[in-house]
Every structure is written in C-alpha cells, then in structure tokens.
Amino acid sequence: MLAGIVTAVAILAAGFPALAQQDETEKEIERYRAMISDPFSNPGFLFVDRGEALWKEARGEKKVSLETCDLGEGAGKLEGAFAKLPRYFADADKVMDLEQRLLWCMEKIQALDTKDIVKRKFGRPGVTSDMQDLVAFIANKSIGMKITPEVSHPKEQEMVVLGEALFFRRGGQWDFSCATCHEATGQRIRLQALPVLSKPGPAAQATMATWPTYRVSQSQVRTMQHRLWDCYWQMRWPDAQYGADAITALTAYLVKNAAGGEIQVPSIKR
C-alpha cells in the first residue's frame, strides 16, 4: 500500500520537476528538523539544564527554592503546566503567563529581589537570563502535550478578548498592528514567511507550540515575552515593558488560536 503510494508519487513527481524539487526540499527540511530536535544537538537544552538547577536552588531572603511554586497544576507540579498558561491564579487574583508567574513566585516564596532578574530578562553574550533558563526548563516539561488554553474563568475570557483587541490595534510611525503581518495567508517579509495568527489553525499551532525556542541568530533561548517585545520593536512601537499584562493578553489570544498544537520546546529557529 505504502509502496504503491510512493511509486505513484514518484511517477507524478517525475512529470513535474518543480514538484519533485519541492519534495526534495521538504525532505531535506524534515531531516534538518529531526537533526536539530535531538536534545544533544540543540543548544536550547543547555538552558533547560541551567533552568532545572535554578528551580531547585535556595535563593532570596527566605533561602528556599522555587519547588513549591504553583504554576497552575498544584504546588511544584511542572508536567503539563506550560500547556495551560496563561491562566487565572486565585492567590494573585489575575491571569498570568509563565514569566509573570515565576516573578510572582520569586517575590512571594523566595522573597527574592527581582530587579536583577528583570534586568537580565533577555540574555546576551556574557549575560545569562534566569527567566530564559527557567522558562526553557518548565516549558520542556510539557513536551509532546497539546496546548490546552484555560478559558473557564471570566478573567481568562476577558484577557483573550483584550488580547484580540490589542492584536488589531494600529498605531505608531508605520501604522502597524500585529494583524498587519499576521492576518493574511501565504505572505512574507523579504523571504521570511509570516504565520497567520488571527485564526485557529495549523499556523498558530505550529508557532505557539515551538516557543520558547533557541534562536541561532541570537545564541539564546527566547521566550514569548521576548518574541512580542521584538514584534513591537519591529512595528516601531515603544519599548514594551517586560511582564506587562498586555503581553499576557496577547499571549492568551494567540494560545487560544493555537489550541491542540503539540508542544515541542525548546525548538530551534533562525
């Protein structure tokens, strides 16, 4: 059966050199993906390891680890927690993404001064980011699981609606909104393909299920907070504040459109 299909495809492809070429390219990309998703080849896993150590390290005035931090699935439970974030936390009475929640746990559980942590929010040569490391470690604990947005609480629903409004809000020197680049299918900036993020489907799933990611061009694992900060930078908007609710709202909206996507993180990207 499979051999028959392969033969049929081969015959079809032989008649269409462009198709055959495309097929070869796809296969090559698939081989590349398989190669880099290997934990031993993706430098993102170094961040995962550092994140695990940070999670277990006693720090702050209280000299305790983060191991009792509740990321939504219960104190210290990491498996599957990332797949349901952002979500509502009763103790903080707000919807939080992973990064906001980690800062909250550092302050409440460890009594850790987060000024330095926030200062190092985005790693660069010679400066590691605790947030990038922790996010890589925690998100990786949801690998293979499906994105399952939490939208049962009214505040979660409000965040999704707010995120959607922000997604379409045009402004700045170039009149851009997120939708300018991520509403239509099959478009690209220069040679960079642009995923459609304004509707549920495979593009939103593939995007949201592969962040955090190791960005080869930056030699860093980047988180969704960084991705959206970077988008606003490109949009010619002001410097977006790390951990702001607007970023969480946008993430909640994007995650809603990515429901069902299978999480593969840290991935590796350009």
Partner: peptide, 15 residues
Amino acid sequence: ATVEAAVKGVFGHAP
C-alpha cells in the same frame, strides 16, 4: 478604556 489602560501598562514607562 480597558484596551488603552493595557497599552499604558506596557508602554507607559517609555519617554
């Protein structure tokens, strides 16, 4: 007003 408050929250510290 909710949208603008969120915008203020994320960009309000900018010059």
